[in-house]
C-alpha cells in the first residue's frame, strides 16, 4: 500500500471508531431512559416504549439508516417549506443510536429486573426516593451483569456501522471497497477485515477487564 491508500484506510478507520463511540454513548443514554420507561407503572409511557422497541428491533438497520437520511429532508419540506439535509455523519449516528437504544433498552430492563426486590424495599425504608434508589442502589448493581451483553452490542454496532456506507459516508468499509473495486485487487477487503478484527478484539478485551474489576463483591 502506498501512503495515499494508508491514509485513506486510517481516515476510514477513524470515522468507524467515531461512529461507534458516539452512537454507543448516545444509545446508552437513550437505552437507559427507554428501560426506565419500560419498567415504569405509567401504562402510556410503557406502551410508547414498547412500540419503539418493537419497531427498531423488527426492521432492518439498513432500512432505518435510509429512512433517517432520506426522510429528514422531506419532513423538513413539509414543516419549514425547504429541505434540510443532515450531514451524513449525523444521520448515520442518529440511525445507529436509535437502533442500539432499542436493543440496549431491553438489555438494561432485564438487568434492572434481575436485581432482588428487597434492594428497592431496603432503599425505600431508608428514605430514598424512587429515583435515588434507582441511580444509587439498583443501577450500580446491574453494571457487572450488563457488561457481557453490552460488550456484545458494542461489537455489533462496530461492525454494523459499515451499513452507514449506504448513504455515502466514507467509513472503513466504504474506503476499502472503493480501493478494492477501483484497483481490482481483493487484498484491500482483507486489510479491512484485519482492522475490524483488531478493533473488536480490543473492545472485547477492555470489556472483559472491566467485568473482572466489577467482580470484587460477588
Amino acid at each position: 500500500m502506498n501512503i495515499v491508500q494508508i491514509s485513506a484506510f486510517a481516515q476510514g478507520t477513524l470515522v468507524t471508531i467515531e461512529l461507534t463511540l458516539v452512537s454507543m454513548f448516545l444509545g446508552t443514554i437513550l437505552g437507559l431512559l427507554l428501560a426506565l420507561g419500560r419498567i415504569s407503572k405509567n401504562k402510556i409511557i410503557n406502551k410508547i416504549v414498547w412500540i419503539y422497541v418493537w419497531f427498531f428491533r423488527g426492521t432492518p438497520l439498513l432500512l432505518q439508516i435510509m429512512m433517517v437520511y432520506f426522510s429528514i429532508p422531506l419532513i423538513a419540506i413539509d414543516l419549514f417549506g425547504k429541505p434540510i439535509t443532515p450531514p451524513m455523519f449525523v444521520a448515520g449516528c442518529a440511525a445507529l443510536t436509535l437502533n442500539t437504544g432499542a436493543y440496549l433498552a431491553e438489555i438494561f430492563r432485564a438487568g434492572i429486573e434481575s436485581i432482588d426486590k428487597g434492594q428497592m424495599e431496603a432503599a425505600k425504608a431508608l428514605g430514598l426516593t424512587y429515583g435515588q434508589a434507582m441511580f444509587k442502589v439498583i443501577i450500580p448493581q446491574t453494571i457487572k451483569r450488563l457488561i457481557p451483553p453490552y460488550s456484545n452490542e458494542f461489537t455489533m454496532i462496530l461492525k454494523d456501522s459499515s451499513l452507514v456506507s449506504v448513504i455515502g459516508l466514507a467509513e472503513l468499509y466504504r474506503k476499502a471497497t472503493i480501493l478494492a473495486f477501483g484497483s481490482g485487487n481483493w487484498v484491500y477487503l482483507f486489510y479491512a477485515a484485519g482492522v475490524y478484527l483488531f478493533l473488536t478484539t480490543i473492545s472485547t478485551y477492555i470489556f472483559s477487564k472491566l467485568e473482572k474489576r466489577y467482580s470484587v463483591y460477588l
Binding site: 434492594q119 431496603a122 431508608l126 463483591y217 460477588l218
Partner: peptide, 28 residues
C-alpha cells in the same frame, strides 16, 4: 423516622459494610 430491618438483611452487595451505613445519610 422508621428504621427497618428485614428477614433477608437486604444489604447493598456493591457497597462495603461501612458504605452501606453511609449511603442513606449522604443521599437523603
Amino acid at each position: 423516622e422508621l428504621g427497618m430491618v428485614f428477614q433477608r438483611f437486604n444489604l447493598f452487595p456493591h457497597k462495603t459494610a461501612v458504605e452501606n451505613l453511609m449511603l442513606a445519610p449522604m443521599v437523603v
